[in-house]
Nucleic acid binder design. Structure first.
Lengths: 204, 204
DNA sequence: GTCTATAACCGGATAGAC
DNA sequence: GTCTATCCGGTTATAGAC
């Protein structure tokens, strides 16, 4: 098997192990076993465990951004004109996010675990800071596009609204992971939608 | 030194080590060194590392609840009558929370690390679920008291509003840890206050 | 109660055969 | 490229002296 393929396989295996047992539970042995290869193969592909984890952190950020972008994109595409269009778009985006969390809570566990690892690992810490800025940018973009589509405007820069959305998704994720109660998540989402609608101006 | 005193000392040391290096970095050696005792003393007081961590998780929840209760209590005590009183009380509670996060981000790192550890440790997982429920209860109580004090009411059960507050604090914490930008936290707090004020009824 | 010393184990990483 | 075998450092936990 070519190195590139093995590399991908190992990254996916590592992510699954992290989802179950956290970053510190993701030993080189556990990852290799999950991928069905031996320890030597691991080290043939990656120089070290740290090497794999760094790759996984950047990859995780990128795929997460792609997910956000498509989620916002499809929701925005279906938006009708007027504030009602924005409302529906926001509702669908957030309930779509909740669907994702409920369908695969372990994925979120893994993302949180990786974020935390990055934050307290020198060399990856700046990357974590960047990660949030990129989330903010992506969401600000989505809000912009959606408003254009609906023919409305925001009463302040979307760069100031985006952090509210990210904070809401973080709050939703932690609420679900800790309580496993979707109703609570739906309430947080509903409140977030109301909040954002309060910042919709008459028209662009 | 009596066992009870050593126990407390070791728990505090463990918390500090976790704040710096995470739960997995909190080895028995590191904790013992931080406390200025040897490994054997550790095992004289605690049966095992797992034993200490379990104790720390429950203790962490309790102290956090106490912090919340007093923060809400003092903020509520100073509240004037009418919706304006509620607004000030909410603003002060949240900006006080942000002050705490900014003053000691590592403490929050430790809380997050412990919460995550509890969630994926069998035997402690249920405790994590309980933890959030207790936060909800404490905050619901605080909202109730504050409304009484201000002579107003909420347009729905405070049990439904409390998760919004917890989600907001989670969002604030993660925003700060990842961006180190207090301005963003203040915006999230301000939005949360506005959101909650939207649920204040005319009077109780 | 607290120490030093050590047993038993697990983790990352490498050597060398194939 | 992938394997088996091994080294080595670090970790939990315990034994036994004081």
């Amino acid at each position: 098997m070519p190195v590139e393929k093995r590399r991908e396989l190992l990254l996916e295996s590592a992510f699954r192990v992290i989802a179950r047992r956290g970053v510190d539970g993701a030993t080189t042995r556990a990852i290799s076993a999950e991928a069905g290869v031996t320890l030597s193969t691991f080290h043939y592909v990656f120089e070290s465990r740290d090497d794999l984890l760094a790759a996984l952190v950047t990859r995780g950020t990128d795929t997460e951004l792609a997910v956000i972008a498509t989620a916002l994109g499809t929701a925005a595409a279906g938006a009708e004109r007027g504030p009602g269009g924005i409302r529906i778009m926001l509702q669908e985006s957030l309930s779509g996010y909740i669907d994702g969390v409920v369908a695969d809570p372990e994925r979120e566990q893994a993302m949180i675990s990786l974020n935390q690892y990055a934050r307290q690992t020198s060399g990856l810490a700046e990357l974590g800071a960047n990660m949030y800025q990129r989330y903010y940018d992506a969401i600000a973009d989505g809000l912009e596009v959606a408003a254009d589509q609906a023919g409305v405007g925001w009463d302040r820069p979307t760069a100031e609204l985006a952090p509210l959305v990210v904070a809401a998704t973080d709050g939703i994720t932690l609420a679900y992971l800790n309580t496993r109660d979707r109703t609570i998540c739906d309430r947080i989402a509903e409140a977030t939608v109301t909040l954002l609608l309060g910042h919709v101006g008459d028209h662009h």
